[in-house]
Amino acid sequence: MEEILFESEQRQSRSDTAAMLRSIADKLDSGDAVTLSAGEESVTLDVPATHAFEVKVERETEAGGSELGLEFELEWDENGDGDESLDIA
């Protein structure tokens, strides 16, 4: 069962998206907690040093056309760890 704790979607520039990802990357690199907030909603996560990292590109097709998406997902549990290697060029 999946419970959505936080979700946000907004249109923004490529440079704004890069800045947000850079900020998250800096928090991960330093071991600091990551806090996400939008309006009244917020969630703070302590991402463990080892976790699963998933990258997905998908195409959603509807009658009016198609939409491409790029998703990054980090997953972990108390006893889990990631063991596959991914390179982003």
Rank of each mutant, 00 (worst) to 15 (best):
D26L: 10
L28I: 11
G31Q: 04
L21N: 01
V47L: 06
D26C: 04
V57E: 10
L36N: 02
A49E: 15
S37T: 08
I24M: 09
K56W: 06
A63T: 12
T35W: 06
L68V: 03
T50M: 10
E73T: 11
K56I: 08
A33C: 05
F53H: 05
A18T: 11
V34L: 10
I24V: 15
F53T: 01
A52F: 09
E54P: 00
G31H: 07
S15P: 00
L28F: 10
D29H: 07
E54A: 02
S66Y: 15
R59Q: 13
V47S: 00
D26W: 13
L21C: 04
E75G: 02
D46Q: 06
T17P: 02
A33D: 15
D32E: 15
A33M: 08
G69I: 02
L36H: 02
D16P: 00
G69S: 14
L45D: 02
L45M: 08
T50E: 15
M20S: 05
S15I: 06
E41D: 10
M20E: 09
A33K: 12
S23R: 11
D46M: 05
S37E: 10
E60D: 11
G31N: 04
E60S: 03
L68K: 07
G31Y: 11
G65T: 02
R11Y: 13
S66A: 11
A52K: 12
S42V: 04
G64A: 15
L68G: 01
T44K: 05
I24K: 00
R59N: 10
S23P: 04
D77M: 09
A49V: 12
E62F: 12
D46W: 04
M20R: 06
E54Q: 08
I24W: 12
E54F: 07
K27L: 12
R59L: 12
L70Y: 12
G39N: 04
